[in-house]
Amino acid sequence: MGGGASPLICTEGLTRYFGTRPAVVELTMEVRAGEVLGLLGPNGAGKTTTVRMLAGLLAPSAGEAVVAGHSVTKEPSKVRPNVGVVPENPGFYKRLTARQNLRFFAELYGVRDPHRIAETLALVGLAPRADEPVATLSKGLRQRLALARALIHDPPVLLLDEPTSGLDPEAAKEVRELLAELSLAHRAILLCTHNLSEAERLCHRIAVLKTKLIALGSPSELKERLFGRRVVVTLANPRPELPSALGFPFVRGASLDGNKLFVAVEEPERHNPLLVRRLVELGAEILYVTEEERTLEEVYLELVEGGNAA
């Protein structure tokens, strides 16, 4: 992802109420060209409402969003041709074939290139089944077709609302691989998902939404911000006095659990050699030194259930 790339999605205080119920409150974020931003949050957190506002389908109650250079409040009709959407339930005209469905949407988007439909079907691996009615396609193939529909007009912005939801692991993997390829092009992709390992693999940055934005950053930034960095030293001869005997200012905390010594440090790259030397001086017999791997799931649960904002 190019750090200096221009933002293709930019929201400022984006808010939407349904009656008196807030769905999204004061959402401020941006997604740059070539970036995949994962939008995580529990059910009812406002993810779908955000996607709909960014697609020019729902008007914000307050705030503003600019998508591909067009305001969603002032010019939603200019936003729509620049956005490819995979909705939560990607419906199709089931009696028509995959190719007929795609041709219909291509024509609505004003796609003139006669080869574009075949190219897009090939891109999502649907070419061999293109002339079969959608009703006969599996859920995984329909999801691929939904991606093809979102890509048919080659939009700079993709809004994907749980594109792997309900798919079997193999189909989900295929869709993820496709998404990874798409992110290489200079598109801004907003990916709503409940699948945290998918988000960790595909997304450059993660936004955690619970009506309000409660965290935004790269997966590693969020982990670090929330949990700090911890070194795990596996010992052959664990001794209870070790955690308190380290005596370094960069050590923010240490604890012993079985034969594992957990040490919170600021920069393991710089501090680990000093730490290892000190432990050896203290008579510790070291088997392994690793950095503790926090998962995005832990970060997410801490944020959503723990009420922490990162």
């Binding site: 697609a55 020019g56 389908l57 009709s77 729509r80 041709p81 956005v83 959407v85 909705p87 339930n89 990607p90 419906g91 199709f92 005209y93 089931k94 949407f105 609505l108 988007y109 004003g110 939904a146 529909r149």
Partner: peptide
């Protein structure tokens, strides 16, 4: 019934 409305509304169709 087919859930095609949202993708249809997302197009430039007025």
């Amino acid at each position: 019934e087919q859930g095609t409305l949202e993708p249809l509304l997302a197009t430039p169709l007025s």
